[in-house]
Nucleic acid binder design. Structure first.
Length: 425
RNA sequence: GGAGAGGUGGCUGAGCGGUCGAAGGCGAUAGUCUUGAAAACUAUUGUACGUUCACGCGUACCGAGGGUUCGAAUCCCUCCCUCUCCGCCA
């Protein structure tokens, strides 16, 4: 949730900045007007309540019965007046909350401006695109040939966009998990396995149920609970209604969980293989920082992503995501895209987001500022470690050999005990 | 799933219709004392919102949301959570 005070203080500025994220000025204006109305009524209501409290106190000390009853009777009018104001204010408050909640995070001053994906900017490229002196196979051809991935049976069992991982693919998954934990725990990240289900209220507070995001979530009606789309969603609330000590910041987590996505509205898109699936495992970095440190932290998380990609020797590029293509909660976002030989394209495999105080305000995550003595909102950042299914695609395709085998990245070999995935027959 | 007991400030724990934002204790912070420390003593010690140039003032918060009442931490209803026993289960 964005800070209502910003809208109150400089409506035009916020209108302008949010428009870069595709927000209509009228939607911001609406919040402004509702807030004004809300405060007007609040003042009347609180005045009446103060009066009520005063008279109530008088009643309690009034010994004379007649006087007492007279006072009690005189309260009736005030009482109904208060009730009326309360009704009015709760309606406005609901409306205000809803309208404010629907606004995405304000893009950072230095965020790249743009209207769509096409305006995203490649800011770095690493490692040459591999050259093959044979016809490359896509990950499904490789996966089926080496008995690593089965989507056909998964479709019968669970439906489209599900998969079985088998044999070395499974070992690769756990090698990747080991690899990430080994690297990041050394750097001070706290390992975490969070819940994969989340209550609607907390999901809303994380800014992950707003607008069209809701369509992307699996919801279990019987239990009024959602399946998470990322470990991020339940890692943030680990510190909801929490006050950090300044010395504990930055607090960094490396979380592992399964992610669930409905992929609504993507029919016909990436239908082959395991690029776009309903269920996949993912490692996710998450940081809580002091406000003044979040920019640096954002770069740090990106550098962690790059480090690990470089260790796997996968060709990638870093993209700065433009304002209108950013996530709802993001003030600034980078994506890491990995080269997919069969598509002759870089495809998004990671994202790295600074949500500033947007999510922190929602879940009420603060820290004690020693200088001011006040509790102030922290900044929260999230970044993909590896989205396993997608990085598996990249490994299988980029490391494929002429003889049909696949080379296991060197840093993962020790976890699997071999360097090559060969045909079983 | 069945039966019962509970949720109060950083923690512990009283309060069970008005004088309660809430006793007492612990902890924390500052000061006195001390060569220093401990002990002792003294003081301070929640959050949010509104309002004010500011000192301040007001409102709300005792798991959450409703209700009764002139007045609710206290009474009633719904929900959430924790604990104990039984059942089930990895």
């Amino acid at each position: 949730m964005i800070d209502i005070k910003l809208i109150r203080e400089d409506l035009e500025e916020i209108k302008n900045r949010l428009s870069k994220k595709g927000v209509k000025p009228a939607d911001v204006e609406k919040v402004f007007l509702l807030d004004k109305k809300y405060r007007d009524i609040l003042q009347i209501l609180e005045g009446d309540k103060a009066e009520q409290n005063r008279i109530s106190e008088e009643i309690s000390s009034q010994k004379d019965n007649e006087e007492r009853n007279k006072k009690i009777n005189s309260m009736q009018a005030l009482k109904s007046q208060i009730k009326e104001s309360e009704q009015k204010i709760s309606e406005i408050e609901d409306d205000l909350k809803k309208s404010l909640n629907a606004l995405p995070n304000i893009p950072a001053e230095d965020a790249l401006e743009g209207d769509s994906e096409d305006d995203n900017k490649v800011i770095k490229t690493f490692e040459d695109i591999p050259k093959f002196d044979f016809t490359v196979c896509d990950h499904m051809e490789i996966g089926e040939r080496l008995d690593l991935i089965d989507t056909k049976q998964a479709a019968l069992v669970s439906g489209a966009r599900f998969f079985y991982l088998k044999n070395e693919a499974v070992l690769l998954e756990f090698a990747l998990v080991q690899f990430v934990f080994e690297n990041l725990v050394k750097k001070g990240f706290t390992p975490l396995v969070p819940p994969v289900m989340i209550r609607p209220e907390m999901y809303m507070r994380m800014g992950r149920l707003q607008m069209d995001q809701k369509e992307e979530r699996y919801y279990m009606q019987n239990d009024d609970i959602y399946l998470v789309g990322s470990a991020e969603h339940t890692t943030g609330p680990l510190h909801s209604d929490y006050v950090f000590s300044e010395k504990d910041l930055p607090k960094r987590y490396i979380a592992f969980s399964t992610s669930f996505r409905r992929e609504a509205g993507t029919y016909g898109k990436d239908t082959k293989g395991i690029l776009r699936v309903h269920q996949f495992d993912k490692l996710e970095m998450f940081s809580f920082t002091k406000p003044e440190d979040s920019k640096e932290e954002h770069k740090f998380l990106l550098s962690m992503q790059e480090n690990m990609m470089q260790e796997l020797k996968l060709p990638y590029q870093v993209v700065e995501v433009c304002t209108n293509d950013m996530g709802f909660t993001d003030a600034k976002q980078y994506d890491v895209e990995t080269w997919i030989p069969s598509q002759e394209k870089y495809r998004e495999t990671h994202s790295c987001s600074n949500t500033t105080d947007f999510q922190a305000r929602g879940i009420n995550a603060k820290y004690k500022n020693k200088e001011t003595g006040k509790n102030e909102l922290v900044h929260m950042l999230n970044a993909t470690g590896f989205a396993i299914s997608r990085i598996l695609i990249a490994i299988l395709e980029n490391n494929q050999q002429k003889d049909g085998s696949v080379k296991i990245p060197q840093v993962l070999q020790k976890f699997i005990g071999k360097d090559l995935i060969k045909s079983k027959s």
